[in-house]
Structure formats: C-alpha cells, structure tokens
Design a protein around this nucleic acid. Structure first.
Lengths: 125, 125
DNA sequence: CTACTGTACTAGAAGTAATAATACAGTTAA
DNA sequence: TTAACTGTATTATTACTTCTAGTACAGTAG
C-alpha cells in the first residue's frame, strides 16, 4: 500500500496518518471504501497492530474515517466531513506557511499558482 | 519574550524554533538584531541552556539566524536568505495543505483571501 | 461455532527530549 | 592580562514517548 521510514524522527503512527490522509484526499481511497483491518495492515507493514490502531483512532478523530466494531474502518464521505476544529487548524497553518513562504522569497503569484495547480488536480465526481 | 507549553507533546525546542521563526518573519526581531544569549534565555524561560542551543542550531541550519562564537546569535538578513532546501519543503507543505483545505470544504477564493490577508500585513522597508 | 472485525489494557524495550554539570574557545572591556 | 560575557561540545542521568508484545473482550458475518 505504501512505505514507511522506521528510522525517521517522525513517529510511525504520524507517518501513517499523513499517508492515509493523502490517499483519502486524492481519492485513491474512495468514499465508504473499507481500509485494511488493523491486523492485516500491521502484517503488511511489519509493524505492531497497536500502532495502526493509534493512527486509525487519530484519523477518526480528525473526521477522515469511521470505524465500526466487528466490521472495519471506512473512508468518511468527503461531503459530510464537517470538522470545524480541523478547519481552524488548517487556516492557522496556512497563515503561518504563507508568511514563511513570503519570507523565503516566494511571491504571492507563485503561491497562487501552486494553489491553482492543486485545485486543477481536484475533480468532484 | 514568550511562553512555552512544557506539557505539550511537541518538544520544547521545536516550540522555540516555531516561536522565534514567527518573531523573525513578522519583523518583531529585526535584521542583525541580537537574540538573547543561550544562558540568558534559558534563565528567562526556566529551561536548560542545552535546549535553547538545540533550537538555535536548528534555526541556524534553516537560515533564520547566524551565530558568532563569543559574540552571540543574530537574525539573518531576510533578503539574503537563500535556502532552496527550506523553500522546497515549504512548497511541498503548501501543496499538501491546499489539498487538505479543499477537502475540508474551503474554496480557492477563501484560501486566496487568506493569502492576501497575510501579504497585506507584510511590509518591506 | 468460527473467524473475522475494532477496541482496550498492561508490561517492557527502545529511542528521544530534557536536565545537570563541566569544559573549551572566542570576544569585549576594564 | 583578567574578568565576564558569548557560542559550542561532551558526558551522564532522568523523564517521557513511541513501539512492541501479549492478552482479552465485544460486535459482525458466514
């Protein structure tokens, strides 16, 4: 499914959260699609099931997936995501990053171009 | 100078790097201005000098400050910052964050408005 | 019942962060 | 030169987080 850097300073479960978030955002994992089970993914990646569960729990709290006991974990339908808390974090993060980018010499136009690029790749069904 | 959350999951030295970066970017700390010495800041914040030094070392490697043995640490002149490596990281981070913001329901216009807001607050002398 | 699912808990190992104490080298001013 | 600053480096120890390992319980589906 993907690769992890176990030697990274960044915790494995955080890497997992990031990677899975990317897959969901980029629609590689579709709405209501079943994710690998905790034990299955743990075996695939040769890491501990508890670490997977920690990542899934985080993704659930952020509104990206939902889990059903006995059934599995599934991608949360994008349209129904309404996580004002996450949105607030993202807005703050954007502001910080904009200031940093400008400080490092990027122009507003360069940044806007990057936005259009990402927006272009985003297709609603 | 500022406050730290010692109970946070985020390491103190990382919090320090972030806060100082903000002060530099927002021109609270001016070009070539001397930062508090390692020992002085450590005493002010009641944390260990080694932790301060770790933050300063990181800021230096990212190009935000420069340190002179025997003299002190100083804000790196903004115009002369040329850290292609940092810039690359920022660009990647921007793309990730744009995708995430859009996924969470923000429109391009909202994001662009945020950019203009930050840009407006940025004044060159 | 059996074999899956998520979830929870405890215990221990491993790695990172933070502290403490000390030391050395360069700068500056008396 | 001396004294008091500066950054920098090293070692040891403590504390905390991550990760692993093992076990257990509850819900689902065939």
């Amino acid at each position: 499914m993907f690769e992890l850097d176990v030697r990274s300073r960044k915790p494995i479960y955080e890497q997992l959260v990031e990677k899975l978030k990317q897959l969901i955002i980029n629609d590689v994992l579709k709405e209501d699609e079943k994710l690998p089970s905790v034990r299955e993914l743990a075996q695939q990646l040769t890491i501990n099931p508890n670490t997977i569960q920690k990542a899934y729990r985080e993704l659930e709290s952020q509104g990206y997936i939902y889990s059903l006991k006995g059934k599995g974990s599934f991608v949360h339908p994008s349209g129904k995501v309404d996580n004002e808390e996450e949105l607030k974090k993202v807005r703050e993060e954007l502001k910080k990053l904009f200031a940093e980018a400008i400080y490092l010499g990027m122009t507003s136009e360069e940044i806007a171009a990057l936005l259009r690029e990402v927006e272009g790749g985003h297709q609603d069904d």
